[in-house]
Amino acid sequence: MSLGLTRREFLQGAGAAGALTLAPGVFLYAKDPEAPVTDAVRWGLLVDTRLCQEDCNACVDACNEEHNLQDLGRPETDAQWIRKLTVRDPLGGRTISLPMMCQHCENPPCVDVCPTGASFRREDGIVLVDKHTCIGCRYCMMACPYKARSFIHENLTEQLPDAPRGKGCVESCTLCVHKVDAGENTTACAEACHKDGHQAILFGDLNDPDSEISKRIREFGATQIRADLGLNTGVRYQNL
């Protein structure tokens, strides 16, 4: 932003204002840092696969940068919080491309199976791993239907202040919880996709009928991947 202020400083400067209008239709919810999150909101993502380009990797790069997920040259053990998935219909050969990440399930199998309760679902719908109580048993990775989780197989260095990560724990997409709590109302992937001009990823509050994400889902419909499992995912897809 101008004046050398980061967006976060700008927001903090704006005080504890409830909602801030930056531009018409774009609201910023500056969460009161003292208040616990509640289930009044449910954060989620909407992906329009028609807008997602097969050769574009912007969301993945942005996520890797935001959380400093490094490529250690061992693709089988390197962490991936978000990946581009190519899906081809053998009948006719229609191919779609989409970002795949933790679906922030309302009934998350990873949380059900975690022996210590380290995997948990925040009131606002974000599924996280409390890495202080994760013992690294990897049962959640066995249980997740979307292969959304990665185990950290080695010592890490140079972690960023907003993305603590380390050896022996399991991690996955946090829905950029540090951004959400700071009231940025977006995620690194959604931002990057937007910047690249594709606008295939939309972040928003699924509980708020007036939010952009809710409106679009209402108007055009959206699908859950593996809806048969009844997990009520927080990440929805259009034009699958």
């Binding site: 949380v111 059900d112 199976v113 975690c114 022996p115 210590t116 309760g117 380290a118 109580t133 994760c134 013992i135 690294g136 048993c137 990897r138 049962y139 185990f151 950290i152 050896k167 022996g168 724990c169 399991v170």
Partner: peptide, 19 residues
Amino acid sequence: GRPDRLIVAMTYYNFKSIF
């Protein structure tokens, strides 16, 4: 992954977990 947290495994229980 974190065998040093055995004590955590024995003090924090998620009773929904078959594990």
